[in-house]
Design a binder for these strands. Structure first.
Length: 296
DNA sequence: CGCGGTCAAGTGGCT
DNA sequence: AGCCACTTGACCGCG
C-alpha cells in the first residue's frame, strides 16, 4: 500500500501549478512558468520521498494552456530532459503517479467541441507521463461525465468515443472513477465492461451514491477491474465535512473513520490518495495509522 | 501592497 | 436564474 495526496504541498512555499491569464499569454511567460512549476514539483517529490509518501497526483496545471489552441510551442521538446529527470527520480524511489483531468474533460458531452477539447487535454496529461518515461501503472483519472437526462445513451456515447476517438496512448492510462451524484460504482462497472478501463474507487463518493454494496465488496469489485499492466488498485479516500453540504471533503483526516475503513478492507491491498483539504498533513497521519495496523 | 472581481474549459444540485 | 462545488484558488488590475 502506498499513501499520498493531490497536487499541492502546504509545507512548501511553492506551487507546481502557477498560471497566468490567457489575455497575457506569451511563449516567454509560458517557459518561465513551466520552469518554476517543474522545479517546485521536484521539491514536492523530494519532500514526499523523505516522508514516505509514495503516491502523488500531479497537478493538471504543470503546463498552462497546454491543450489550448493559443499554445503552439513545443514545450515537450524544450523540457524533455527535465521531465526525464523527474521520471527517473519517481522510478528510482518507487513512487506511483496519477493525474486527474478537471471537470471540463467530458468524453460523453453532446457538444463535439467539448469532446475534442477533452481528448486534447487527456493527450497533454498522458504526454507528461510519457515524457517522464513512466509505465502504464501511472493513471489518468476521469469521471463518467454528464447524464443529460438519459444515462443509458450517455454511457453508450462514452464507449463510442473511447473506441473511435481516443489514441492508444490515452487508453493505456485512462481510468474511470465513481462520482458522488451521477455515475455510481455500478455504472462504472458497466463502462468497464464496454471499454476495459480500470475503476478508481472513491469511498466517499460511494457513501454519497451507490447501489448498496458494502464497502469491502465495493473495493473488491473495483479491484477486479485492474490487470497486471495497470498495477495495484488506486483509490481516493475521504470523508464528509460535518455541518457542510453533502459531498464536501473534510478539512483534516478523522483517524477513527480511516482506521475503520482499513479494518473493513483487511486483506485487500490498494494505493490510497487522500482527498482531504489539508493535504500532506492528513496523508502523514494516514501513513501512521496504516503503519500501526501493519498495512504497509 | 492588499483587496476583490474574474479567470480556458462542463455539469448538475441546491437555494 | 444564479451560485456552488469539483483534484487545487490564484491572477492581476485597481486603489
Amino acid at each position: 500500500m502506498k499513501i499520498g495526496y493531490p497536487c499541492i504541498n502546504q509545507q512548501l512555499d511553492c506551487t507546481s501549478s502557477k498560471t497566468f491569464r490567457l489575455a497575457s499569454y506569451s511563449e516567454e511567460r509560458l517557459i518561465t512558468l513551466v520552469e518554476q512549476n517543474l522545479a517546485c514539483l521536484r521539491r514536492i517529490l523530494e519532500y514526499n520521498v523523505a516522508n514516505g509518501l509514495l503516491f502523488f497526483r500531479l497537478s493538471s496545471g504543470l503546463v498552462p494552456f497546454a491543450s489550448h489552441a493559443v499554445n503552439s510551442y513545443n514545450w515537450q521538446e524544450h523540457f524533455q530532459m527535465t521531465f526525464r529527470r523527474l521520471g527517473e527520480y519517481i522510478k528510482n524511489n518507487q513512487m506511483r503517479i496519477s493525474m486527474h483531468p478537471d471537470q471540463f474533460v467530458v468524453l460523453n458531452s453532446p457538444n463535439e467541441q467539448t469532446v475534442r477539447n477533452s481528448i486534447a487535454e487527456l493527450e497533454y496529461q498522458g504526454s507528461i507521463m510519457d515524457l517522464m518515461g513512466l509505465d502504464t501503472t501511472a493513471k489518468l483519472q476521469i469521471h463518467g461525465g454528464g447524464a443529460y437526462g438519459d444515462k443509458p445513451s450517455a454511457l453508450s456515447r462514452f464507449a463510442e468515443v473511447y473506441h473511435t476517438m481516443l489514441p492508444d496512448a490515452v487508453k493505456a492510462r485512462l481510468c474511470v472513477e465513481n462520482d458522488d451524484r451521477t455515475y455510481s460504482l455500478q455504472d462504472c462497472m458497466y463502462l468497464h465492461e464496454l471499454t476495459g478501463m480500470p475503476i478508481i474507487f472513491d469511498n466517499f463518493h460511494h457513501e454519497c451514491l451507490s447501489n448498496g454494496e458494502p464497502m469491502a465488496e465495493a473495493v473488491q469489485m473495483a479491484a477486479s477491474t485492474w490487470q497486471e499492466k495497470d498495477g495495484l488498485l488506486m483509490m481516493d479516500y475521504s470523508s464528509q465535512a460535518h455541518g457542510e453540504r453533502k459531498g464536501k471533503h473534510v478539512q483534516h483526516i478523522e483517524e477513527q473513520l480511516f482506521h475503520d475503513f482499513l479494518s473493513e478492507t483487511e486483506g485487500l491491498d490498494m494505493d490510497l490518495m487522500l482527498e482531504i483539504k489539508d493535504k500532506e498533513a492528513s496523508a502523514l497521519k494516514a501513513l501512521e495509522v496504516a503503519k500501526a495496523m501493519g498495512r504497509l
